[in-house]
Every structure is written in C-alpha cells, then in structure tokens.
Amino acid sequence: MSDIAANVLKGDPRSIARLITLAENNDPVATEAMKTIHEHTGDAHVIGITGVMGSGKSTLIYELTREYRKKGLKVGIIAIDPTSPFSGGALLGDRIRMMELATDEGVFIRSMGTRGMLGGLTSAVYDVVEILDASGKDVVIIETVGVGQAEVDVVKIADTTLVILVPGLGDSIQTIKAGIMEIADIYVVNKADRSGVEQAVAEIESLVDIACSGKDRKTPVLTTVAKENKGIIKLVDEIDNHKNYLKKTKMFDVQRRKRYEAELVEIIRKRLMNFIFDESTFKGKVELLIDQISKKEVDPYTAAEEILGKILK
C-alpha cells in the first residue's frame, strides 16, 4: 500500500487533501491509492443536500455537522460549486458559513468545482466520497447548488438526499415539479420563520401525497430555521430514520449497488474518452475524421463506428 493511502486510512488531513487533489487531476498515483482503499469503505452514511441558491444550505450543513459532532461522529463535507465554462476557473465560497468548523479535527471540508462536462458532477466526487469514507468519517455530506444535472447525479451517490426549499421563493414548488421531485428522501423547508411557511409545507405535502401513494414510505417534509438552530435535531433523527428504513427494506444495498454501477460507468467513460481524445496516435485520426465530416466526405455515425471499431479490435 502506498504511503498516501495508508495515511488516508489513518485520517491524516494533509494526505486526504492531497489524494483528493490527485484524484481530481486524474493522476495515476491516485488510481493506485484508490484501488487499495476501496476495501476500507462503505461505512459512512452519504447525505446529498441540494436546493436553490439562497435556501440556506451552507448554514444548515453547518448546524447539522455541529449536531453530529455532539454525538461524537466525524463528518466530511464536499461543497460543490459550478466551474466557469469560459475560464475553467471557479469561485468556491460555501465554506464561508462553515469556517467555525475549520479547526475541528473531526471535520474535513473540501470545496470542488464541477469541472466536468455538461453541468453534471465531476467524476472525482465518487473518489472524494470514497476517500472521506476510508479516512474514517461517519457521515459524508455532499452539497450542490441549483437544480441541474449535478443534483440528479448526487442521488446516484448519496444514500439519503435532502432537498432544501424556502417559503416565499415562488419558484420552489415549480422547481420540484420541474423534475427533482423524485430525488428527495427528505424535504426541508428552511427559513421557516418567514411568512408563507404553512403554505409551502402544504403544497409540498400535497405533491408528496401524489408521488408516494401506494408506497410504504412517505417522504417527510420538515421545517428548520438553520440560523437559529431550530429543527436540526429532528432533521438528524429523520436522516437516521431514512437510513434505518433503507437497511430494513434491503434498499440500502440496492442503492449502493447503483452507486457503484454509476461509478464504474463513469470510470470506463473517462478512460475511454481519454484513450480516444488524449492519446497522441489516436487523436490525429479523430481530427482527420472531423475534417472529413466537415467536408461531407463521411457522416458522423460512420466516423464513430470507425473509431469504435479500432478500439474493439
């Protein structure tokens, strides 16, 4: 086992941090380390948290984490913000509301840019979850912003997914209808000290009633005021309840299996794309084919078949 992998298993922050960087950069050192730590993973409860901007996610995560820390649990947090499609850079500011946790040895926070394609999650998130899990974190929280592919992707990784809404934000309900209805295991209406909270809860519950009719578990709708630490204990209980429910119904393993499937597909996809587009010998051929497509000498499908044919040979 490499030093870095061994130190990650011991929970050393610098090694955890460095391995994440290597994994993000697709460094071969990371690949070797990832191979050895996998057998030490699986114990962490992975919680996905998503919701629109301004819903108070970061504050909620801060309070949740403090609650877990009171119970003596170690927490890893992955805060994901979009990478600029223009520059490839990113401004990662989710830590601002969690800085009080920075010096707590039982907490590890990492900010990530999406980097990846099509607005989805960067494939490195799978690695980061495994790294934090292997390093002994009992809870791993993944935070994403907005309502896009990244949010749907979170579900593939998380055991329990929270969707955060706020009252009075007219588009909240629209958001749910627009497609993330299915992803929530728990709804949280944060900033519940604002007017319109009853209405928001009622609207979500009526949607939940329709979606969950005939199912053995009804998605709970909780209210919190994160900045005043209200409703957090109840939320932690509900998150535990969900995990127990998954275990009891054997859904836990089914979901985990889905996560590994997604991860496997992602690794293969990444490797394959690298092979096709990054290898010097192959890349020339690709460029040539693109020229030919432009000149109508060949169509895109035939070109693709030609490339795949070469790989499969």
Binding site: G54, S58, T59, L91, G93, D94, I96, R97, K227
Partner: peptide
Amino acid sequence: GEYVEPAVY
C-alpha cells in the same frame, strides 16, 4: 447572537 454574512462575491 452574532451575524454571519451571506456568501456573495
């Protein structure tokens, strides 16, 4: 209590 600012840049 104390105020923490929203993250805006």
